[in-house]
Design a binder for these strands. Sequence first.
DNA 1: GTGGATGCAAACTCTTTGCACCTTG
DNA 2: CAAGGTGCAAAGAGTTTGCATCCAC
Lengths: 150, 150
Amino acid sequence: MQRLTRQRNAVFSAFSDAGRVLTAPEILAHAREIVPEISLSTVYRQVSALLADGEIAKVELPGEPARYEVACKPDEAHGHSHHDGEEADHHHHYFHCSGCGQVFLLHACPGPMDDLAPQGFQVQSHEVTLHGLCASCVGAGGKAGGHKAH
Amino acid sequence: MQRLTRQRNAVFSAFSDAGRVLTAPEILAHAREIVPEISLSTVYRQVSALLADGEIAKVELPGEPARYEVACKPDEAHGHSHHDGEEADHHHHYFHCSGCGQVFLLHACPGPMDDLAPQGFQVQSHEVTLHGLCASCVGAGGKAGGHKAH
DNA sequence: GTGGATGCAAACTCTTTGCACCTTG
DNA sequence: CAAGGTGCAAAGAGTTTGCATCCAC
């Protein structure tokens, strides 16, 4: 179904290059280092395909454009070709640095928070976003809040 | 500075009418019940003014258009604007119902989560969003997903 | 009467889509 | 060669802004 175009490869390898959570324009920039003529439309189309394939996951933070990260597919390469519809656990939380604007994956979860909801409400999932300064920005002078690296 | 226009009044009373967290188009709909000729631009402009005045607060949830809620201003009118740092800011979390799409304010907070961040990161704030079914939608048969309350 | 507020339309950001052309298998 | 992907441009949602008009003060 999916053809192995240079563009598809470029989009996917953009994640390996950066190894972090990327916006569509950031993916475009990385992909253009490999295929300079690639367009933003193709990035979005390949991102959609990769999302459908479960290769990457969408990361939406409040007030931010969508980002994408490589999905953690525990044992997809182990010969288990039978892929059950939903990958059970894309349950991640994120840290948004107000210094450089980057988003980092957190490897911890505060656990279920069903008790925060009012009586009679049925909690199905939760999202946590942390804001602050990443290690680099703390080192670079702490109070540099707000200015974006460009 | 601010003139008491019918539109400003209509926008502000939209919140009293609904008493919940509203998107701009929802504010427009409520305001039009009072001032039918009001435009979406004016809603956005009045919302900006009300935000600047601290009358309302912006509520941004992942993957959702911005919403607005009346700000809790503890005792701003009493002349005592200085507080002990207890709840100077409106630190709220929200519940997003996947049934009716409404957003509800939560009155609890899981507390600081600085330990979720990697070493060297400086956590300044956190946001929590719960997803699930509100009491009405649970009562209405749970899987009523998608239909909006008019 | 004057200046801030309004309504309309255009602009802007982010994302999706229609269409003619090109590439992969 | 044909199915499918690509680039460009245009369309959409959500939000902001320029401008002539209007109305609260």
